[in-house]
Design a protein around this nucleic acid. Structure first.
Lengths: 208, 208
DNA sequence: TCAGAAAATGACCAGTTAGTCATGTCTTCA
DNA sequence: TGAAGACATGACTAACTGGTCATTTTCTGA
């Protein structure tokens, strides 16, 4: 009984091995996509036998979803921290956008999974796991919608349905992620961030 | 030699059969996605033997790409017609947006393929076919960029890089398509079109 | 040190499916 | 009418891969 607050060595070791597997899987999934990735390759990269993977995860799907849910969590934590450092609604939304891209730059692998596969998840996953994903994603959207709704209340933004505006901003961010993932070199990421910020806040129409 | 300008009966019949196959394939691909769709099901829906499909298409990939390229062509034709009916830059871009959604409503199947699979095409297709798709898609983007560039020149729009603004508008439109495809019922399509138009032209920031 | 538990392993199985091809059917036209 | 080519067909094959499990290896505690 040497564990008081923390986990026993065995438990820690088990978690460390699970982490190894998750990292290997993230790499392989991000290279080949869910369907094309094979458990044989994941096992090889993780330096475990294939059978061992099944001591840690019930199925390929569950392994995949674990990676995605982890990624979403880290992302949400990261942007919340950045947003909380600001006070005015506009600054907070800008902080959100900046943090999103900051996180993207640091976590390309998880994003190439999230961004490229998101739209086909419904077909890749069984109902339960897909619903888990959906509610996590809805959480992300809700948070952004609250940020925007706050700005609307404070008259910093025009009268928009916050949920719809959040969806739109997601779409703008998403489109840049996709382009950046598909042409990793020679993509003017920073320039594009400025463009979508300017469009989202000011629009393209010339002032009257 | 009864054919002068048009095709012989044989050629016409062949094209008609090819069309049947394409229609069946579009239906099956839109239901299951590229990877999960099977040639057996396509053959069954088309009411041909599986072997027959190979008299018309070299491979599953080629069949898939044929459908996509056709879809893109029809889309481009349709929006150009709508855009040409207008003169001012803003009206033309609005016409583009409206036409895009009009076309979407009339062609859900092809869009559920284009929108859901676009991001994974690089992994589904061999290099040549993927490049074909890319250049077609680049054509779509170029056209929209020219519309916007025209507005910038005429001072109807702010000084934006037209290519980047076009990408952004694509992202906005795309995000609505995805949501609409993923939750076909109970999605306020028209409301969302208005929102992205308002955002794209005016932005969300309250006027100073 | 060693017996028994826990964990790792990878050959194997079963299901799936893109693509083939030998055979059968239809069309054409002399 | 019938020979010859064109076209349709679906049973079959070969390749792939998620998941299993009997066996081996490692760990643990007395």
């Amino acid at each position: 009984m040497e564990s008081e607050v923390s986990l026993s060595r065995k438990e820690r070791e088990r978690l460390a091995r699970q982490d190894e597997i998750l990292n290997a899987a993230r790499q392989v999934f991000s290279e080949h996509g869910f369907k094309n990735a094979t458990l044989d390759e994941i096992a090889e990269v993780a330096e475990f036998g294939k059978g061992t993977l099944y001591n840690y995860f019930k199925s390929k799907e569950e392994l995949f979803v674990s990676i995605i849910l982890r990624g979403i969590h880290h992302f949400q934590q990261f942007v919340e921290e950045a947003v909380n450092a600001k006070t005015s609604p506009r600054e907070r939304v800008e902080a959100y956008i900046d943090a999103a891209f900051e996180f993207f730059k640091m976590n390309r692998q998880i994003f190439s999974i999230l961004v490229l596969e998101r739209s086909t998840l419904a077909r890749s996953l069984n109902g339960d796991l897909f619903n888990q994903f959906c509610s996590e994603e809805a959480g992300l959207l809700d948070y952004l919608a609250r940020l925007i709704g706050d700005g609307v209340k404070k008259k910093a933004f025009k009268k928009f349905d916050p949920a719809k505006a959040a969806e739109a901003l997601f779409g703008l961010i998403h489109s840049i992620f996709i382009h950046a993932v598909m042409q990793p070199d020679a993509y003017d990421l920073n320039g594009n961030i400025e463009v979508i910020k300017k469009i989202f806040f000011e629009g393209i129409a010339a002032s009257a």
